[in-house]
């Protein structure tokens, strides 16, 4: 057993240097050489100021912007240092109460909405920083956003249609709209 333990210690040291240090360091070097923007976290800038990351959802409350999904990450939601979902099960009273409240909030914020309530706007995401909403969820909010900005509904709907990302290769994942990119495009629309 002593011989096996000795080999174990030596193998551990050698492999930690190779796989635990050299490998991630080399990968970081290569990543910055080939894809520096993504390696750093896909930050998005506007007027020279960083306003977030393209792959990380953020909190929106103003009626002038499209809102993301309910979030269980951190105290106020959308905290990337505290990712996760509600972990409430299908028979949870808390879950049903929270969903009911989310529906009521949504209806209050969108009095002019005519479309059916989209499921993703009343359920919490898995990560708490979901950057996307479904196209249906964007169209649902369009009347509110158009009214708050004094834009024609058709113009807002057209912007949504341009912002939808379809399934990869036509089959993978679901169609979606990145909320940050949509809202930045919305701001650009006005000027």
């Amino acid at each position: 057993m002593l011989k096996e333990l000795g080999t174990s210690v030596r193998f551990t040291i050698v492999s930690v240097v190779l796989l635990g240090l050299l490998y991630p360091l080399a990968m970081t070097g290569l990543a910055h050489l080939l894809f520096p923007r993504q390696a750093d976290g896909s930050f998005v800038t506007r007027d020279g100021r960083v306003v977030g990351s393209a792959i990380v959802g953020q909190l929106w409350t103003s009626p002038r912007y499209f809102h993301g999904r309910p979030s269980a990450a951190g105290k106020n939601g959308y905290d990337p240092t505290s990712t996760g979902g509600t972990n409430l099960g299908p028979s949870s009273k808390k879950l049903i109460d929270a969903t009911r409240a989310a529906i009521a909030d949504l209806k209050r914020q969108n009095p002019d909405a005519t479309l059916p309530i989209p499921m993703d706007l009343v359920t919490s995401s898995a990560s708490g920083i979901d950057p996307d909403i479904s196209p249906e969820a964007a169209y649902y909010q369009a009347p509110r956003v158009a009214k708050a900005r004094g834009l024609a509904l058709a113009a807002v709907n057209a912007l949504i249609a341009r912002s939808v990302r379809g399934r990869t290769f036509g089959i993978l994942g679901e169609p979606r709209v990145n909320v940050l990119k949509l809202n930045l495009a919305l701001d650009a629309l006005r000027s």
């Binding site: 910055h32 080939l34 976290g41 306003v51 909190l59 990337p80």
Partner: peptide, 29 residues
């Protein structure tokens, strides 16, 4: 490396505080 290309971060940076479009502070890991 394919994952990095697709957007998975690979860095040793400290977490970065950003002010979002609507003025909320967010810490990007």
């Amino acid at each position: 490396l394919f994952f990095v290309w697709q957007g998975v971060p690979q860095n040793f940076n400290a977490y970065r505080e950003v002010t979002t479009v609507t003025g909320v502070t967010q810490t990007i890991t």
